[in-house]
Simulated assay, not measured.
Amino acid sequence: MTTRAAVRPATHVTRPPAARFRDLLASEWIKLRSLRSTSWTVALTALFVIGSSAVATLAADTAGSGPADFLPHLAYPPAGYWTLTLVSGVSGALTVVSEYSSGLIRTTTVAVPARGEVVLAKAAVTAVLWTAVGTVVSTGSFLVSRTILDERHAGVPLTHPGVLRALVASALLAPVCALIGLGLGVLLRHSAATVATSVFTLLMLPPMFSESARWSAEVNHAMVLSAWKRLIQNWETGPGSLGHSATVPGSWIVYALWPLAAVALSVLIVRRRDA
Score class of each variant (00 low, 15 high):
176 V>T: 08
107 T>H: 12
111 A>E: 06
131 T>A: 09
128 V>D: 00
138 S>D: 00
154 A>N: 11
178 A>G: 09
164 L>Y: 02
138 S>Y: 03
180 I>A: 14
157 P>T: 14
115 R>A: 02
143 L>P: 11
149 L>N: 14
159 T>C: 09
167 L>C: 06
168 V>C: 04
129 L>G: 03
180 I>M: 13
136 V>K: 02
167 L>P: 03
181 G>N: 03
131 T>P: 00
128 V>C: 03
143 L>W: 10
110 V>Q: 12
142 F>L: 10
190 H>K: 14
190 H>W: 11
183 G>H: 08
139 T>D: 04
148 I>F: 02
173 L>E: 05
153 H>L: 15
114 A>N: 12
175 P>N: 12
167 L>E: 07
140 G>K: 00
156 V>L: 14
110 V>F: 13
111 A>K: 04
172 L>Q: 05
154 A>Y: 00
178 A>V: 08
160 H>D: 15
142 F>A: 01
109 T>N: 14
166 A>S: 07
121 A>V: 10
151 E>G: 15
159 T>W: 05
157 P>Q: 10
148 I>P: 00
158 L>R: 04
179 L>M: 08
148 I>T: 06
116 G>M: 12
186 V>I: 05
150 D>A: 15
111 A>T: 14
173 L>I: 03
131 T>M: 02
124 A>Q: 09
187 L>W: 06
171 A>K: 02
184 L>W: 05
151 E>M: 15
190 H>G: 13
123 A>F: 02
112 V>M: 01
120 L>N: 07
106 R>C: 12
114 A>V: 11
120 L>T: 09
157 P>S: 14
181 G>Y: 02
106 R>A: 14
108 T>S: 08
155 G>K: 14
147 T>G: 15
163 V>M: 13
148 I>Q: 06
131 T>Q: 01
183 G>Q: 13
134 G>Q: 02
168 V>M: 03
115 R>W: 08
108 T>W: 04
